[in-house]
């Protein structure tokens, strides 16, 4: 699998930090994980890795738009015109809005499935933990709902099952947050509901990464 992670602002630093456990989990399960990170995020590097590694799964963490994924300089590096890069691969992109047009373009170009978000991806956070995202209890439920998709795929579940697990996890977290006495819980709650509403996939529901 290929994991692409930008890391140039607070949001991407959160995605970067919370995705580390997924890389470890993948490696423990025997996946060979190729990382493309920071300033190395580019179309050229991605195509080269795909050619060499022939991955079954691409996991993108960073910014995006309805037509594109952005690199570390917040410039498009993949868009609807280069969506053939997703051919014969299952992709999960934590990037705003990319399911709207990039997702369908990936499928039209032979991608097996594309999991993503139809709207902006919200991260509610406690700014005390800006430098230590993993300690941020406000962001954690939001990131765990996203991480569960990758964990489920790594267990051999289908795309549809994995997205469903995320929705189920979101529902449990939402109910827990409603009853929480934590003063910052409403922020988590609202971000979680927004992201859960925006999460979906295109392409083959039965696709797997192993």
């Amino acid at each position: 699998m290929i994991v692409i992670r930008t890391n140039h602002d607070i949001a991407t630093s959160y995605l970067f930090a919370f995705s580390e456990e997924l890389i470890k989990e993948a490696e423990n399960k025997g996946f060979k994980v190729a990382r493309i990170e920071g300033i190395n995020v580019s179309e050229t590097n991605l195509r080269s890795r795909i050619k060499n590694k022939k991955p079954s799964f691409i996991f993108f963490n960073g910014h995006g738009s309805d037509t594109s994924l952005f690199n570390n300089q917040e410039q498009e590096f993949i868009n609807v015109d280069s969506a053939d890069v997703f051919k014969e691969i299952v992709t999960y992109a934590i990037a705003c809005n990319c399911l709207v047009k990039l997702g369908p373009a990936a499928i039209e170009n032979g991608g097996y499935s594309f999991i993503g978000y139809k709207n902006p991806f919200w991260i509610a956070r406690d700014h005390k933990y800006e430098a230590t995202p993993l300690k941020d209890k406000i962001a954690r439920p939001i990131m765990e709902c996203s991480n569960i998709i990758v964990k489920s795929l790594l267990k051999g579940n289908t795309v549809e099952q994995s997205v469903k697990k995320s929705h189920e996890n979101a529902k449990e977290s939402i109910l827990s947050l409603i009853n929480s006495k934590e003063p910052l819980a409403p922020a988590s709650l609202q971000a979680l509901v927004a992201n859960d509403s925006a999460l979906d996939f295109k392409g083959d529901a039965s696709a797997k990464i192993m």
């Binding site: 991806f121 991260i123 509610a124 700014h127 971000a191």
Partner: peptide, 18 residues
């Protein structure tokens, strides 16, 4: 306004907002 003031939101490439 009902939320505590020390909350922030990161909203994709829109940026970070208190």
């Amino acid at each position: 306004l009902a939320m505590p003031p020390d909350i922030s939101f990161s909203v994709g490439n829109f940026g970070d907002y208190t």
